[in-house]
Design a protein around this nucleic acid. Structure first.
Lengths: 341, 341
DNA sequence: GACTTTTATGCAATCCTTTGCAATAACGTT
DNA sequence: AACGTTATTGCAAAGGATTGCATAAAAGTC
């Protein structure tokens, strides 16, 4: 290597300071215990001046701590997950950790592959954004191997998690549509392996039941979670039951797809058919027909999830946490825009 | 530590195989040179069976290669950047690398901080998604320190990059609106430090000039790059010049904001005012008024950018690369939907 | 002032792989 | 049969930081 970057090592700093490496090491450690204030000051100054940066590989090798955490998400190009990850990563960085994030596309095979890559990298813990209700091998492996982990976005009974109170969110959406007098509802329910979708749908349905109204099974459509899926499910619903007056979609992307379907059926979202989404992605307000939706705190969820993981790593307990959702009423449900932007 | 995860080390594999660690190491390396086929087979089998995974820290310490690359982007929760990153990361994974990705929010101070974190982590190269035209300290540092890097999304003269041909993209948008007879145009031009925005605008304007039409300066608005910014700039344009018949926005998020502004001014996007965006994010087709836009290959850009970085790391040359944009005509420009979905 | 306690620093081992060099064994050649 | 090759494997050092233990110096005690 002709142009080796030649980084400064601790020995060089120590040599220059006229002390032993061990002294230099201690002086630079956060709890510079047993080192006189003057040498601490001197060495830190010298290290700074020489541009010394500890070699993470050497430190990891010695301490067994990689300083790296893993994050698995279904899809990072989904705003919701990206935003959660931003919260996760910001918090990790603030605590001196870095994160590896990987897409799993909700594919069980890919999930295990990605998990193994993370474990091979010796991550100290994992934030899991794609937990599955239908027998989640990944969480089982994590539990068995005693790797600290926290679920975000989706949750599983008996595992540490930070999620939105999705049952409550579903109820909010239902209460809103009930208040507007809708009694013939379609639901784009998303995939059945995602707790988010199941709980939102359940909350919605139970609120209607509480009002003495039931939603027929053929008007609750399992689906994907993106705009295309929303479009397809929306089309099916409108064809199957043309007299539906409102559609609840388990997230905003699907809701946007639903609006597209409504338009293609020659109707107008918000006037002819009410649409309610979930998450309140930033675009929601700015859509030609602003979207009524249930706001969830994505960034905060990531932040809290990472905090919980850091606690777990330190051996502290981590009770599951629910974040409260808020209804944002806008034009797509034909309501007077209470939520505003 | 009562519950140390006790990972299997190479010594244990070697001991169990009855060979020296060095033999085991060589047997497991991809080019198992100088080791008999039989022992290679035996040791690999044993390693697999024992669940051996090499310690990346130890390997990195010895070889000086961390196996990690860095990625800096303005904002990962922006679909465009997330999608580019997915391409980057997928390609890195396929080559045995992992990536650290960080948001810089287009903030110069944050950029330097994030860069230093990546360098402290000993990344072997960096993909930069947020290069700035107004004197980019980060690329200068990378160049000076001889850290391999590739620009994606935005480019800078004289630096390796993979970007969309944004001038051409701007031309396509302009040609489309010219064809539809629009001669009074507003432009939501985005930030002036981003080559994407500058080049798209320049391409657009030059195409109009070529057609003998000029666009007045006060109808070209510098702005942010998200929906809010698009909304604000759109509002300003519509108030300033009510007789504008078409607006070109430098990306789809801004375009969606513009459509919101148009609607709030009591007009209908696509009928009263044509809107053209850029990138063709998946939502674009499914909007209540489907968005005419210039498609760019985001995933591919990430993939190509990472390939180029890997080449650079191996010392191969890396000429800048331009990807061709494609116009997707939809309802927001009032055109008969040629582009389809 | 002799002795204990505290404070500050040095010593050396350790973490796990990788790799240049040495050594041995197997093979072929004339 | 003696010797040069080639094929395998072992040896040991290196890479950079951390940390328990030991030592030396300083401070404190009666």
């Amino acid at each position: 290597m002709p142009n080796a970057p030649k980084t400064v090592t601790l020995v060089e700093v120590a040599k220059r300071a006229g002390v032993h490496v061990s002294t230099a090491s201690r002086a630079l450690s956060s709890s510079a215990s047993g080192i006189s204030a003057s040498t601490v000051h001197r060495i830190r100054g010298l290290a700074e001046e020489m541009g010394y940066e500890p070699d993470p590989a050497a430190a990891a090798l010695r301490t067994g701590r990689s300083g790296v955490l893993g994050v698995l998400v279904p899809l990072l190009s989904d705003y919701v997950l990206a935003r959660i990850y931003e919260g996760v990563d910001a918090t990790a960085l603030a605590s001196g950790y870095n994160t590896f994030v990987s897409n799993t596309k909700d594919n069980p095979v890919l999930r295990k592959e990605r998990l193994n890559e993370l474990l091979a990298r010796r991550v100290e813990g994992i934030v899991l954004g794609d937990a599955r209700l239908d027998g989640d091998e990944v969480v089982e492996i994590l539990k068995r191997k005693r790797v600290p982990y926290v679920l975000v976005n989706r949750r599983l009974r008996g595992h540490p998690s930070v999620t939105t109170d999705d049952v409550q969110g579903g109820r909010l959406a239902a209460a809103h549509l009930l208040e507007l007098g809708h009694d013939n509802i379609g639901i784009v329910a998303g995939p059945s392996y995602a707790s988010t979708c199941v709980e939102r749908t359940h909350g919605f349905v139970s609120q209607y039941l509480a009002a003495g109204l039931s939603i027929p099974d053929h008007q609750i459509l399992e689906s994907g979670a993106d705009a295309v899926a929303g479009y397809r499910a929306g089309s099916t619903l409108l064809e199957r039951s043309p007299n539906i007056t409102a559609i609840f979609a388990i997230n905003d992307s699907a809701a946007i797809g639903v609006m597209g379907a409504i338009r293609e059926h020659g109707r107008t979202p918000g006037r002819d058919v009410a649409v309610v989404g979930y998450n309140d992605i930033p675009l929601a307000t700015y859509l030609p027909v602003p979207l009524t939706t249930v706001r969830s705190s994505m960034f905060e969820m990531g932040r809290e999830g990472m905090s919980m993981l850091l606690n777990l790593i330190e051996g502290k307990p981590a009770p599951p946490k629910l974040l409260p959702p808020v209804l944002m009423a806008r034009a797509s449900s034909g309501s007077n825009a209470t939520g505003g932007r």
